[in-house]
Structure formats: structure tokens, C-alpha cells
Design a protein around this nucleic acid. Structure first.
Lengths: 126, 126
DNA sequence: CCGAATCCTCTCTGATACTG
DNA sequence: CAGTATCAGAGAGGATTCGG
């Protein structure tokens, strides 16, 4: 897939655009709440209130904000049931599920090195 | 290692402490710059200036701040060579390397679903 | 070259109140 | 119940400067 390039060729610009997009996505997702929401959703379908109970410490506002962002990026699906009282459910899409798997890896890592980190902190805090 | 527990036993407190510690570590690491620094280090040893060139867009201050945090958590090792001009080198420790592998997974995910995400965004932005 | 401290700006975050 | 708007306080992040 390596093609010969001229100076200032369009494909170079494409690569730069893809890179900046990747960076943008990275910035979106590399935040505490987004990752915790994805973990909380897991394989289940949850309502707004259920999610707020599940993700400990998140505010109403942050939850809304992050849910919008995740929906925009196609990681979660939002279905509104036109009933009263309103019922809105969230579930992970296939890309979202794929991401959750890698986040699981992060959680595993955290638990495996928990002790390691704690002792390292104590040594550092002198 | 599973021991019998009484109600309100000390181990329950331990579990809560470990959970809050895990949450804290999660908050530390779930940020753009920390992940990009770890990726930049990879298997190599880099100086402060080299790292700043490698991690595009990071400021002097943010780099310092995150390097301290990563060092405190035992993810990177900092070696000072007492010469003039000063020479300070950073390298990933074993836990850091392990974390890098899971971050690689995140990068793979980003590139795999790049198109997916871009179209989802366009659909959302109406 | 590397790091710490200062200042200044701007975004994020939480609390509250209001609509459908 | 779910979502939006607004406001004030806290905190992140950038630029700069000085010291080792």
C-alpha cells in the first residue's frame, strides 16, 4: 500500500487529516468519565438514571455531556421510548463493545499492578 | 487467600481502599498526555527535550507534570546524569511496558474504527 | 538542558432551577 | 424521568522567567 508521492501530494494531506482526527478521538476518549461509562454499560442496556447510579460520583451534567459525545462518535446507541414518564436507554454499539474489551485490559492492568504502584508512591513521597 | 469474614471486618475496608486507589490511578492515567507520553517512550530511552519533540503539542509544563506523575506511580524511571549541561533520561519500567501494550490496543482500535467514527459524526452533526 | 515558580486565561465541573 | 440553561468556583493549561 505504499505509493510514490509527489511533494505536497493530496495523500500526504490525507494522512495528516487522519492523524489529527485520531488525535481528536484520543482526546475525547482519554478521560475518566467516558471510560467508566463504557465499562458500566458493558453488555447491558441501561437507562439514564441507572447509569448515574452505576458510575459513582458522576454529575447529571457530566453524564449527559459524555453520553452525547459517545453517541456522536458512534460508540453508544440512544433509543427514546415516547412514553410518559420518558424512558431513554443506552447501549454499546459494536465499535463500543470493541473498545470496552481494550478498556477491560486497562482495568486488569490496574489491578495487577495495584500493590506495585502503592509502594512506588510511598517511596516517591519522601 | 480467601479468608472468612465477620460483619464490618477490616478486609471490607481494605477492599474499599483498594477500589478508591484503583479509581485514583484510573484518573491519573486516563488523560491524553500521559497516554501519549507512554506511547512515545515505547521501548526507547529518551531525554526531556526529545520527548517534547516526540509528543506533539505538549507544553514544557505539562510534560514535567506528567513525567512526575508517571514516575510517582512507578511507570517510568528517571535517571539524572550529573554533567553540564544536564542530561536526564526517561524510560518505561516493566509495569509501564505492560501498560503500553494495552494502550497499543487503544491505538489499534482508533485506527480500525476511524472511518466508522467519522461517518457517525457527520450523521450526528445535523 | 532541565526544572520550579509565577501569573494569567479559559475550560471544566457542580449546584440549581426550569421545560417536555 | 430525561434534558437544557445558567452561574460561580475550582482547576487545567500556556507563556514566561529565574535557578541549578
Amino acid at each position: 500500500m505504499v505509493t510514490k508521492q509527489l511533494a505536497g501530494s493530496p495523500d500526504e494531506a490525507d494522512v495528516r487529516r487522519a492523524d489529527s482526527l485520531a488525535r481528536e478521538i484520543f482526546s475525547d476518549l482519554a478521560n475518566k468519565w467516558a471510560l467508566l461509562i463504557i465499562e458500566a454499560l458493558g453488555e447491558s442496556t441501561l437507562r439514564f438514571g441507572e447509569l448515574r447510579d452505576e458510575v459513582e460520583g458522576i454529575s447529571h451534567k457530566m453524564l449527559t455531556q459524555n453520553l452525547r459525545m459517545l453517541e456522536r462518535n458512534g460508540l453508544i446507541e440512544r433509543t427514546v421510548h415516547p412514553v410518559v414518564p420518558p424512558r431513554v436507554e443506552y447501549t454499546l454499539t459494536e465499535p463500543g463493545q470493541a473498545l470496552r474489551v481494550t478498556i477491560d485490559g486497562l482495568c486488569d492492568w490496574t489491578h495487577r499492578y495495584l500493590g506495585h504502584i502503592e509502594t512506588s508512591r510511598h517511596r516517591f513521597d519522601d
